[in-house]
Amino acid sequence: MSEQPENIPHPAPEAQGEQRVRRGSQRFAPGEGPAPDPAGSHYERRIRSFQPRRSRVTTGQAEALLKRWPDWGLDIDGARVLDLDEMFGGLPVVLEIGFGMGEATAQMAAADPGTGILAVDVHTPGQGNLLGLADRNGLTNVRVANGDAIILLREMLPPESLAGCRVYFPDPWPKARHHKRRLIQPDFLTLLAPRLVKGGLLHCATDWEPYAEQMLEVLTAHPDFENTQADGGYAPRPGFRPLTRFEGQGLDKGHVVHDLLFHRV
């Protein structure tokens, strides 16, 4: 599977309407692509667990966004509750928080077409890359959400609407003063648990040892989650989680990758 979308020229204006995206731009006309700040000032400015990255959108990524965003993309604006049954045609839905360039997401969607993947990120090139992969491979079970996953969970997802949640290689925020920015915290788990069906699987993976230890401690202590491992420890990497390029880079550096699989009780 290609790591980058092929470089397709922009369509002529008469074929697509007035051209809204300049080469390298991350701004799209309303409804044509991800908004820079979809929730605007409607919600409190909390400490965020992600750092938006500003990098160049390739022509191929922009083309994928223009083509597929109106049908397969959504902004996390907090203004409505999503109907996942309608969005995914009744498939069980797994929320993936942070998908990078989307290669692993596309592989999982292709391997399991009976599961919908609601993939959330704030990185515009990655959003375009995943939409391009989904389009070229006919992956109709992927939707791309742009914005803050916390607002999505809190404002836009109804109770017991998710079959699972995946958090692969979140930012470890290694400096001690930044640990409060880590996503896997008691408050996040308390927010997530009611959106999962009973028995729904939370799957986390990280190559940062101190963060893995924190994840295990926090998940083990939370009353809404139970470890799938009888010994209460880390899990072997399940076959459905692909070995990602990022993970391979960590392994090359001698990092140890830990998987944590917890069910909602």
Rank of each mutant, 00 (worst) to 15 (best):
E18D: 13
T228M: 14
F262W: 04
P9I: 09
L153Q: 04
A145C: 04
I8S: 10
W173S: 04
H258L: 10
N137T: 12
E44W: 12
L162G: 10
M108E: 14
T220H: 12
N129W: 08
I184C: 12
D171H: 06
D187C: 07
Y168P: 05
E160A: 14
G138M: 01
L130Y: 02
P186L: 06
R56C: 06
L118Y: 05
G116M: 04
A111Y: 05
A193E: 03
E103I: 11
E247H: 09
W69Q: 00
F88N: 07
V167Q: 04
F262A: 08
P194C: 05
Q214T: 15
A12F: 15
E14P: 04
K253G: 13
Q185M: 09
Y234E: 11
F188Q: 04
V142Q: 08
H203V: 12
A109L: 02
G233V: 06
D259R: 05
C165F: 11
G78R: 04
A64T: 03
V167L: 09
P70G: 09
D121R: 03
Q185G: 01
A163Y: 09
Q127M: 15
R181W: 15
A104W: 05
L130Q: 03
T115W: 10
A119I: 01
G89S: 07
P172V: 10
I151F: 06
P238W: 09
